[in-house]
Design a protein around this nucleic acid. Structure first.
Length: 168
DNA sequence: ATCGTCATATGAA
DNA sequence: TTCATATGACGAT
C-alpha cells in the first residue's frame, strides 16, 4: 500500500534544474526543468544513490555540452510494456549526432505500420535525454513532438549538430 | 498541396 | 468500445 521508496533529486544546469527520480533499483525518471513537481524531497541518501546521481548529473551535463553522456546509472524501466522496452532499447543505440525516424524504428522492429505506436512509446519514455528520444524525427526530417517541449528537442538537436526541417 | 482513411500499441473514459 | 496519441503510406480531390 505504501508506494515504493523513491528519491527525487535536482540536477542543476545552466538551463534550469532537471529532476531525477530513483528507486532502489536505479534511475526511474528524468524530468525536464519546470516539467515536474517540486523536487525538494530530501531523505537520507544511501551512498549508492549518491553515486548514481553523480553519474546522472555528469551524463546530463555532458549531453548539454555536446559530448557523449559517458557511464549511466542503472535504469529501472520496470514500468514498460514489451513493445515500449523494445523501442527504448533502439533509442539507446542512436549515437550522439545521428537521428532516426518513427517509421524507421517501426520497420527495424519488424512492425512496419506501427510508426504511430513508436511515437506513443517515445512519449512514454520516462528517461528522456539519457534515453535519447529527441533524436527521433518524423518522416521528411520534420520535427515531430517531444515530452520535454519542442524548444528543448530543437535545442538538443542543434547542440548535437543535427539540423531538422522547419516545423510546419 | 490537402484531406480522409487505415494500420498499430496503449491507456483512459 | 470509442477516443487520442510525439506517424506514415496511399488514393482522391
Amino acid at each position: 500500500m505504501n508506494p515504493p521508496p523513491a528519491v527525487r533529486l535536482p540536477v542543476p544546469t545552466r538551463a534550469g534544474s532537471f529532476v531525477a527520480t530513483y528507486s532502489p533499483r536505479g534511475l526511474v525518471a528524468l524530468a525536464f526543468p519546470g516539467r515536474s513537481r517540486q523536487p525538494a524531497d530530501r531523505q537520507v541518501l544511501s551512498p549508492e544513490i549518491r553515486r548514481w546521481h553523480e553519474l546522472t548529473s555528469r551524463a546530463v551535463r555532458n549531453l548539454l555540452n555536446g559530448r557523449a553522456p559517458g557511464r549511466l546509472p542503472p535504469l529501472d524501466l520496470d514500468g514498460g510494456t514489451g513493445f515500449q522496452r523494445a523501442v527504448w532499447t533502439m533509442l539507446r543505440r542512436i549515437p550522439v549526432g545521428k537521428t532516426r525516424t518513427y517509421g524507421e524504428l517501426a520497420r527495424a522492429l519488424r512492425r512496419p505500420g506501427a510508426a504511430r505506436a513508436v511515437g506513443s512509446a517515445c512519449g512514454a519514455n520516462p528517461i528522456p535525454l539519457l534515453i535519447p528520444c529527441h533524436r527521433v524525427l518524423a518522416a521528411g526530417g520534420k520535427l515531430g513532438g517531444f515530452s520535454g517541449g519542442l524548444e528543448w528537442k530543437c535545442r538538443l538537436l542543434a547542440i548535437e549538430g543535427s539540423v531538422p526541417k522547419m516545423t510546419p
